[in-house]
Design a protein around this nucleic acid. Sequence first.
DNA 1: GTTAGCACTCAACCATAAAGAGTGCTAACG
DNA 2: CGTTAGCACTCTTTATGGTTGAGTGCTAAC
Lengths: 344, 344
Amino acid sequence: MEALSARHIKVLQAVVEDYIHSGEPVGSRTLSRSPRFQLSPATLRNVMADLEESGFLCQPHTSAGRIPTDLGFRFYVNNLPAFTAVSSEARRQVRDRLAGSGGRLEEVLQDGVFTLAQLTPYVGVVSLPDFRQMVVRHIRFVKLHERRILTVIVSVSGAVQNVLFESETVLSQDQLNRFSNYLNALLGNLTLSGIKRMVLQEMASDKQGYDELFAQVLALSRSFFAKDPDQQSDVMLDGKLNLLEHPEFADVERMKEIFKAFEEKGSILKILDGALGGEQLRVIIGAESCCQEMRHCSLVTAEYGREGRTLGRVGVIGPTRMDYSRIIPLVNYIADAMSRRLQQ
Amino acid sequence: MEALSARHIKVLQAVVEDYIHSGEPVGSRTLSRSPRFQLSPATLRNVMADLEESGFLCQPHTSAGRIPTDLGFRFYVNNLPAFTAVSSEARRQVRDRLAGSGGRLEEVLQDGVFTLAQLTPYVGVVSLPDFRQMVVRHIRFVKLHERRILTVIVSVSGAVQNVLFESETVLSQDQLNRFSNYLNALLGNLTLSGIKRMVLQEMASDKQGYDELFAQVLALSRSFFAKDPDQQSDVMLDGKLNLLEHPEFADVERMKEIFKAFEEKGSILKILDGALGGEQLRVIIGAESCCQEMRHCSLVTAEYGREGRTLGRVGVIGPTRMDYSRIIPLVNYIADAMSRRLQQ
DNA sequence: GTTAGCACTCAACCATAAAGAGTGCTAACG
DNA sequence: CGTTAGCACTCTTTATGGTTGAGTGCTAAC
């Protein structure tokens, strides 16, 4: 397998692009008819045979045209000749949708995946930030019943989370209010994990001479953290039905597989946040995801965040035969728009 | 179309049951082989022809066996010869699941649909109570930022709801706490709509001589209700993938249709809560739902509630070819188990 | 009222044939 | 030596037709 000549690359690109748009295996004849080549089918056949040997193309069967392998798509994406700019219509839709709602984290994320599902024939996907890693703006305790307490946690990015737990002693709502105030005053810029760490440290140091209030807050916090809201992060999907429009998922078995992966979101999450080297944009093609059920899918995702902090990734899931040159700029654009919206 | 003879009924039941278990059109031969008939195929053919004429059976094409129409299933369900008792294994699973979690409304509902999806090859479905109709146990206001206020509402059945709104004036958290306390003291057994009604009445009466606090609480409530959390009720589904196992949904087009209905939950909700005559148990067969996309599906649902109040309906969605004699008791059982769990 | 017999219909299956697309290989060409 | 035309070959797709089997409706006899 030697280096690819300029012609090889050009042919590979042509095959990939044709396949992306037609969905059919592409043969040497079709290719030679294209005005971008002045070559006969025979010559192209030779080139394509080389590309097949190198693993960039394959044939569904003898006497069919070629289709790109994952490797072929990978090469194509890494050497994308040109991007399709995000249309002004699409920009408008993104802007309108994001501006139209409240700006709470969940709303922004929902708007993001919704717009992606609208603007593409693929599935919009976004990973929710791990709640424990989010900077807390506000904690409030609400007494429900006896020792049953509802905790309302609001993050700086506007996410609201409710956690139920049981305190060790019965406390009045007034006491809880004082605790809330105390904690909030203390809070400056800590994440939930940060608060937990602090509480545990303080308890371990076991100083005497705490004022009563602080001791009580610590005790309460401990029972709160004992429950460890391992609510973990989660993913949101939109537009699953879009996938049904693609011929590659006409087969019920294949569909079932992918929907199974969607149902238990864990595996999607792992693919999204899995590779920890947080590149701004990431394209995962077919089997690269290492997820059996997703081997016929590609993911294009980008980071979104707030004030320099990465919160998660947003993007689309579609067939490996995806219109990368259009999708990549679009995903970038939406991730950016969401981050800007969250800033406000 | 005259009244059905005992024999007609027996044949209809046999056809329905055979079809439910085989999924294939059932012919006169098959039927006559069954030990429950001592009749020749020819005789059965005559009976079946009558049933077809009356609209209880139909043929996919000449020279195929018969399958029940919606009307046939309807008759069968209305005259169910016997129920299959809920197995002790199933009871155990329901009990374990419900006992295992926290008892918050959402958890109970989730456990309910989950168990249904586990125990049947169909989709578990439950309608969430309309939040405005739920009796409020607790209201709490949390100041987020300037005039931005988060309201946490807890219902007696343990549902928690967050609503964001903007107050007219800037208030401190201390003030909000006092308002919360005041409102909660006032609250005794009102629904959210009830509270709204009360607030509007009080404001309309426009008495002078309110104490300051009450006036402020009223003002705050008004801006809260101005937003009208028309969060409406919602539905939860589980086990959508179960449907893919049924031969009747092997066709991608049909699948797409149903999943579309699932996606926009409004239509499901309408079917569930639509017919307002709240029978304890309800079976909706095929086109009876009046929902185009659901015409190949049946729903078996039962009411669940708390302290005599109906909160919503829980049940399953499956193909019209559903094992009604097993499903009906099961749905009843789960609805009952959920209601009992909510009582605690 | 029930049954046996018979002609008929129709989907499903299978084999075969023909068409069409595409290939690899070879030999000729500039 | 790269390029091209030609050709035999492969393999899918589509159409065709015949056969089988399940099931029916009708009629006549029991």
